[in-house]
Design a protein around this nucleic acid. Structure first.
Lengths: 140, 140
DNA sequence: TTCCTTACTGAAAATCATTTTCAAATAGTA
DNA sequence: TACTATTTGAAAATGATTTTCAGTAAGGAA
């Protein structure tokens, strides 16, 4: 069983059927090291399953997002791309050169959020943190 | 001089002309306490200047963003809304109830970014941090 | 295994946001 | 006041996403 099949399992466990189209989309997105737009998923997945339609890509991405298997990536250039979601509380680190996405964890923003909560009177529920930089390859 | 006129001045200083349409858009966005989509700006600004066209809203927002007077706000529901930009290095705090936007500063992520840089080999150039919660009003 | 129901499919059409085109209007300098 | 380049709004064009629909096929039931 390849790792991407755990996604197919999850789809199945949630009452969705496993089809050739979904296999192709899942395989494509699961293996990606950078965020892919629906069109990019379509282009790549059609190399695996020629008859795939773009509409099915949209519909499959929607389901994968609903199951928290993928997540939308917000970037200055746009917010339509998706990447496999990290497990647990993770944040993104994006390479401005090649677009590669890495996850990291271990941010401790408790002190910060407590301080902001005190200053503003807000009850803070969530945070988005994302770092941008250059990966090892793109630095040189 | 109302405060929003500093934006008009900036437009003028950068070679753009001051028109009734731009006045209406600037006044609308400058005074907003939550992020507005182009359509929302259009609806509100047309109360000031009836003949305004939606296209002009898009074009004016583009210029204001270019001059860093406004910034795009990324939210789970979408990323098309704009708010007056903060001065200096500031981050956003969004109320999940009413949509109100506040700025805060004084995040110290140096320790974090250094640690991530060491672990990943990335050269980190920038970060996006955004907090979500409930404002004083919406808490009660 | 075969059957049957229902979910899924791709194509085409519809929708929605945004951008481009264009001729008329006008800001603001000369 | 006159002039010229910028700006305008409307309409058309574009591009992304969603909906519709009739045919297909997954996968549980028999």
């Amino acid at each position: 069983m390849t790792a991407s099949e755990t996604w197919l399992e999850q789809l199945h466990d949630n009452g969705y059927r496993i089809t050739a189209a979904r296999r192709a989309v899942v395989h494509t997105v699961f293996g990606a090291t950078h965020a892919l737009t629906p069109q990019e998923v379509y282009d790549a997945a059609r190399k695996i399953y020629r008859a795939l339609g773009l509409v099915t890509v949209y519909r499959t991405l929607e389901k994968l997002e609903e199951l928290h298997l993928i997540q939308r990536v917000h970037q200055p250039v746009g917010c339509q791309a998706f990447i496999a979601a990290g497990v647990g509380h993770q944040h993104l680190l994006l390479c401005q050169g090649c677009g590669q996405v890495e996850f990291f964890e271990g941010d401790d923003l408790d002190a910060l959020t407590r301080s902001i909560a005190r200053k503003t009177g807000y009850q803070i529920n969530e945070h988005w943190l994302q770092l941008f930089g250059l990966c090892m390859n793109c630095r040189s």
